[in-house]
Design a protein around this nucleic acid. Structure first.
Lengths: 199, 199
DNA sequence: TTTTGTTGATTGAACGTTCAATAAAAACAT
DNA sequence: ATGTTTTTATTGAACGTTCAATCAACAAAA
C-alpha cells in the first residue's frame, strides 16, 4: 500500500476519524486505538504523523477552526452590499454553516471547549477564535454605533450565537439551523434598530 | 477520628473537592487520588460513599443542579410583583447567581456538559435542567405572548443566558456578572416590548 | 465488645508510545 | 524490459505508566 505523498491523506483521515470517535464515544474514550481503527490504520501511525495523541487533537481543533474561518470568509467575500448589517449576517451565516453543522463537529467543539481550559495549546487556539468572532462583530457594529454600544452589541450577539450553538449541541433533537439563525438575525436587527447605519 | 454521622460531612467534602479538582486540572486529570487528597481523606473512601468515581461525579452534578434550582426558586419566592417580567428577571438573576459564580462551578458545569453527551446518567440530569429553564421561561412569556412567540422568546433568552455563561467560563478574565445580567435584561425587555403584559 | 469510619498497599485492566520488522513503491542500473 | 537497491509507509507486539477499585487491617467512638 505504501505510496509517496500519503501524509496529507493520512492526516485528513485521522482528523476526520478523531471527530467521528469523539462523536461516538466522547473525548475521554476516544483512544488512539479507536481512532486508528476508525481510520482503518494502525495505532502507531498517529505518533508518526502527529507526534502523539495531543498533536492529533490539536490538529483536529485547528482544522475545525480553519473550516469555520473559511465559512465566514467565503460568505463575507460574496456580499450583496457593503452595509454593516450584511457583514454581520454573513458572520452569523458562517457560524451556522460551520462547514457542516454535523453532530460530530458540534460535539468535538464542545469537548475542546472543556478541554481547552486546562491544555495550554488548545486554549491558545480557542482564544484566537473567540477574539476573532468578537472583533469582527465589534468592527461592524462600530460603523453605526458608538464604541461602548458597539461592544455591548458585539458581546450580546456573540453570546447569542454561542448559546444557540451550545444548546443545539446538547439537545437530543440537534440544532435547528434555520430557527437558530433567525433568532440571531432578530437580535441583530434589534441592535441596529436604533442606530444610524450607512447605506 | 471516626465518629457517627460522618456520611453527610464526607459527601459534601468530596463533592467540593471534586469541583476544586476539576477547576485545578480538569475533569480528565481529576483522579480519585487527587480528589481524595484535596478533601484530606483516603482514596478508598470515595468508593465507600459513592460506590465509585462515576457516583461521585453524578452526585457533584446533582449538587450543582440543586444549587441552581434553589437560587432560582429563592428569588422567585420573594418577588416584588407578580408580573411576567419580574419572574423572568428572577430566573435570570438565579442563573447568574448560581449559588456562586465561581470559576470552579463554571468549569465543572462545562466539563459536565461535554461529558453528559456520552454518559447516560449525566445526560438525564442535564436534560432535566435544560427543560426546566426553557419551560420556566416559556411559561412566563406565555402570559403576555402568543404561544409561538413565547416559545421563540424562551429559546432566545435561554440561548442568551447559556451563551453569556459559556463565554464567561471560557474567558480568562472570567464572567462579568453585572454586564452579563444586563445583556440578558436588555434582551428580555426587547421581547416584552411589543407584548401586552398584565400588570 | 461491637459498630462505624478509614486507610493505603495491592491488583488488574487500559492506555499512549516505541521500535524492530515488513512490505510496497520508487529510483536506479543493466 | 528486468533485476536490484533505496526510500517511504506501515504494522502490531511489547513496555512502562497510570488509574479505579478492592479489601484486609486498623482505630476510635459507642
Amino acid at each position: 500500500m505504501p505510496k509517496v505523498g500519503m501524509e496529507p491523506i493520512r492526516r485528513r483521515q485521522l482528523i476526520n476519524a478523531t471527530m467521528q470517535a469523539i462523536d461516538d464515544v466522547g473525548l475521554a474514550d476516544a483512544t488512539v486505538a479507536r481512532i486508528a481503527r476508525q481510520a482503518g490504520v494502525s495505532a502507531g501511525i498517529i505518533s508518526h504523523y502527529f507526534g502523539g495523541k495531543d498533536g492529533l487533537l490539536e490538529a483536529t481543533m485547528r482544522q475545525i477552526l480553519y473550516d469555520l474561518g473559511t465559512a465566514v470568509a467565503t460568505r463575507r467575500a460574496r456580499l450583496a452590499d457593503n452595509t454593516p448589517a450584511a457583514h454581520l449576517r454573513a458572520i452569523i451565516d458562517g457560524n451556522f454553516d460551520r462547514s457542516q453543522v454535523s453532530q460530530s463537529v458540534m460535539k468535538t467543539w464542545l469537548a475542546f471547549w472543556a478541554s481547552s481550559m486546562h491544555k495550554h495549546d488548545l486554549q491558545r487556539l480557542q482564544r484566537v477564535n473567540d477574539r476573532r468572532l468578537y472583533s469582527n462583530l465589534c468592527c461592524q457594529f462600530r460603523r453605526c454605533l458608538p464604541r461602548a454600544e458597539a461592544r455591548r452589541a458585539a458581546r450580546g450577539l456573540a453570546a447569542m450565537i454561542d448559546g444557540l450553538w451550545l444548546r443545539g449541541a446538547l439537545a437530543p433533537e440537534g440544532l435547528d439551523v434555520d430557527r437558530a439563525r433567525q433568532l440571531a438575525y432578530d437580535y441583530l436587527e434589534e441592535q441596529l434598530a436604533h442606530a444610524e447605519c450607512p447605506a
